[in-house]
Design a protein around this nucleic acid. Sequence first.
DNA 1: TTATAATCGGAATTATAATTCTTATTAAAG
DNA 2: CTTTAATAAGAATTATAATTCCGATTATAA
Lengths: 143, 143
Amino acid sequence: MTVLFSKKCEIGLQAVLYLSTEEDGVLFNALQVSEKVKQPKEFVSKVLQILTTSGIIGSKKGKNGGFFLAKSATEIRLIEIVEAIDGMEVFEKCVLGFPECGDTHPCPVHMQWGKLRDDAYNMLKEETLHDFKMKTFDKLATL
Amino acid sequence: MTVLFSKKCEIGLQAVLYLSTEEDGVLFNALQVSEKVKQPKEFVSKVLQILTTSGIIGSKKGKNGGFFLAKSATEIRLIEIVEAIDGMEVFEKCVLGFPECGDTHPCPVHMQWGKLRDDAYNMLKEETLHDFKMKTFDKLATL
DNA sequence: TTATAATCGGAATTATAATTCTTATTAAAG
DNA sequence: CTTTAATAAGAATTATAATTCCGATTATAA
């Protein structure tokens, strides 16, 4: 099992972070991305398609085609990628699985998890891809 | 998808919280637990078996048998249930899925997630079942 | 001692997520 | 205009988690 997001989503996050390491206008094809994130090309392609449909990245078909950030790295937030692939359910459901958990019928950890969940949400929402760029570059270089 | 734990684990947590609502020595059979947590008896039985093997709950076979807390509610912590069913992987793996993420090769959210992860761990570790007992009773009564 | 009501453990099945395959479409380059 | 290298989309397959089923065992109570 993954931690909080599906494997598709993890790959999507990694792929977009990788795309953000290049300047505007430079393309990476699916093979290059798949080698960087160390996952099969076919699977990575699927994820890149989803991100293309949702408008986070753009694609160019045909020879010398590939993928690129659809917006500037200063405008893309990690939460958008999570939302496009997994949706927002993780931030809405009870961590203990109680279907009726809420402010009126709280589970034993409702308040505490609520804070953690909001912190996680903010972690993904507040910083832009650009903020992460250097860290990411260092990170991806070592993989 | 579930939030952080497998469905088995969610049911295990709910089941143990339910068992903790009774005094020592009182048994609940699998059917009673399954009705309370609103899941099929067969599935709940499976989960109760796992918890029995790991020593968190006890079982009595045969007619009038059932399940009960193996220790006092003041000695059982939610983290034990998570560990018995899902293991500790959620608290060890990178939230973005980078296989080499760690203090030397941190992912973009490594430090921030590290804090959240530790807070979640402490949330499940520090309070005992007994601490949750009244809240839980109220909670389960409304389901 | 027999019937009954439980847990136990493993096998079988089903559902869902992950992964792969296939074919179509597109655009550049020869 | 043809070949080539790419994405696109959906179908098919595989892996894993969830769920169900069945037979065995156990203990109580009639």
